[in-house]
């Protein structure tokens, strides 16, 4: 797969000549200098205002600070994990329903997917926080965040699965039929295993976006990482430091997830998948 796409890029992308390379080098150097300058200016401003003082950074190594943010991190991971474990299988069901030959089922699934894919997640969270309690339907904070995450993420992930199912070679359907598999058997034992492998990297991306969606927990006062950060700021007044640390944690987690995606992708390439 990757070799195909890279050769396709080579066809479309004309390798630059000596002049072009020089221009690219010059622009690269200039932009690196520009970015470094901006960062430097920022750091200088921080330094002038005393934001780089050790006293403002060392506390983040203190046990109680770590515990406080750790609680938030645990909340974030828990919400993300629970949402993913429910949302992804549900997404698969939605995708299969949308592809089902039974028209009403397919229409219903399509309507459901398009609705939750189209509206911002914040609106769904508000619905659970403000609208539903008015009708006597209440959830605890965890579910007020996680249910909207599931609804929105399953709708977008359903489309990922659908794309994967449709990307499986037509010949595989024919082969499955020719050896006497029934439509359901062929879906379960031939099409789905290949489709899931095709979309594994995209699923990890969906997980990353799920993790970021969990920051909406602050709306319902659920103790996730960003909300804990906000609380910490209101106590310590270390605004810049806290949000930089919190951002750092998010970036590290997402980098780890992306690495997982790369490893999975490599393993998939090495094994079968391209039959």
């Amino acid at each position: 797969m990757s070799t195909n796409s890279s050769s396709a890029t080579q066809v479309l992308f004309d390798a630059p000549g000596p002049k072009g390379r020089r221009r690219i080098l010059l622009l690269s150097v200039l932009s690196v200098l520009g970015i470094a300058g901006l960062i430097g200016a920022g750091l200088w401003q921080f330094a002038v205002n005393g934001q780089l003082d050790a006293a403002k950074w060392l506390p983040y190594l203190r046990r109680d600070y770590i515990a406080f943010l750790g609680e938030g991190l645990w909340g974030t991971l828990r919400a993300t994990a629970v949402a993913a474990v429910i949302a992804f299988p549900f997404a698969l069901v939605l995708a299969l329903a949308r592809l089902a030959p039974l028209r009403p089922l397919s229409w219903a699934a399509t309507a459901w997917i398009e609705f939750f894919r189209g509206i911002p997640m914040l609106l769904v969270v508000y619905a659970f926080l403000l609208a539903l309690p008015a009708y006597g339907v209440t959830f605890d904070r965890f579910w007020m965040l996680v249910v909207p995450m599931i609804l929105v993420s399953s709708a977008t992930t359903a489309e990922v699965f659908r794309a994967g199912i449709r990307a499986v070679d037509r010949g595989q359907h024919e082969a499955a039929a020719a050896i006497g598999l029934m439509p359901r058997q062929s879906m379960v034992s031939v099409i789905l295993p290949q489709a899931v492998r095709l979309v594994l990297p995209s699923l990890v991306l969906a997980l990353v976006s799920l993790l970021k969606d969990s920051t909406l927990g602050f709306v319902v006062s659920y103790n996730e990482l960003q909300f804990q950060g906000k609380n910490m700021v209101s106590i310590t007044r270390f605004l810049v430091q806290t949000y930089l640390v919190v951002s750092g944690i998010y970036i590290v987690i997402n980098l780890l997830l992306t690495r997982v995606a790369l490893v999975l992708d490599a393993r998939m390439q090495k094994r079968a998948a391209q039959g």
């Binding site: 024919e174 020719a178 290949q194």
Partner: peptide, 29 residues
């Protein structure tokens, strides 16, 4: 379905299942 299982079928791109081993492919039917 019973008819197809009782008839062998070989197609051009062999139509093997890429996620199963050679042995499992042969043993499918």
């Amino acid at each position: 379905v019973a008819l197809r299982r009782s008839i062998g079928y070989v197609m051009q791109a062999s139509g093997l299942l890429p996620h199963r081993t050679v042995q499992d492919n042969v043993a499918t039917v």
